[in-house]
């Protein structure tokens, strides 16, 4: 189960990173244009102008997207490995750490991490489930084309199966990923909260990295397409 959670969030994070690399490329193009203006003015840096071409800029954009994805994987997806079912957790921990106690603390003492991490994880889970459903749909469509079902039916069958896969993934893993994110955020905020202001700054970098990607995933996931 924890591995499945990790994979689900990682697929969602990649779907988001895949949609931002073009925007990164644009930023790098503008940065390169500004730097070329400076480098070309000095003899010893002049060679650098030609050194960075279109290939390098594209690689840089995709490399940055990859690093961004890795960073969010580490900060948001990897903690999913610590997931335990309620029944497994009960003997290990005190009542302070039940789901309901955590939700209560989120309401009473909201911090950036307590708010952003579960929301971002939820968005990544939906984006991941959609990407998985799309893979199921196309693979099934191709497999069914070889005469298993009559032509004209294979499309709707593949779509229904994809929708089923999306619902299954969200119902079995999606909500668990969100709860685990809340649990991780809650634990970290409680630990850091012992110092003054610690809870507010806990996990801030990870949250700052995850938030734009989550936004990109939310914009670029047309999950309703299965109904059209």
């Amino acid at each position: 189960m924890p591995l499945g959670l990790l994979a689900l969030v990682a697929v969602g994070v990649h779907a988001a990173a895949d949609s931002v690399d073009d925007r990164l490329r644009w930023v790098i193009d503008q940065l390169d244009a500004a730097l070329d203006g400076v480098f070309a003015d000095f003899e010893f840096t002049r060679a650098w102008v030609d050194a960075v071409g279109s290939v390098e800029r594209t690689h840089a954009a995709r490399g940055l997207a990859f690093l961004w994805e890795l960073a969010v994987d580490v900060t948001v997806a990897l903690p999913a490995l610590g997931y335990l079912e309620e029944s497994e957790r009960a003997p290990l921990i005190n009542p302070k750490w039940t789901w309901s106690a955590q939700l209560l603390r989120l309401r009473q003492r909201p911090t950036p991490m307590r708010v952003i991490r579960p929301v971002a994880t939820g968005v990544f889970a939906v984006a991941g489930a959609y990407a998985i459903a799309r893979m199921v749909e196309s693979s099934l469509y191709l497999a069914l084309r070889s005469g298993i079902v009559p032509d004209g039916i294979n499309g709707p069958v593949a779509r229904i199966a994809a929708l089923g896969a999306m619902v299954l993934v969200l119902a079995s893993l999606g909500w668990r990923a969100v709860l685990r994110a809340l649990q991780h955020a809650d634990q970290l905020c409680e630990e850091r909260g012992k110092k003054k202001g610690g809870a507010l700054t806990a996990g801030l970098i990870g949250s700052a990295l995850a938030l734009p990607l989550a936004l990109a995933a939310a914009i670029d996931t047309p999950w309703w397409s299965f109904f059209r």
Binding site: M1, G4, V11, H14, A131, M135, S172
Partner: peptide, 24 residues
């Protein structure tokens, strides 16, 4: 039955992660 569905869901996620992500 629910455990089996959870397992199936997790396997789908792992399959997609292996073929859909650079880390995979």
């Amino acid at each position: 039955k629910s455990g089996l569905l959870n397992l199936f869901g997790a396997l789908l996620c792992l399959w997609a992660a292996a073929y859909h992500t650079p880390v995979g």
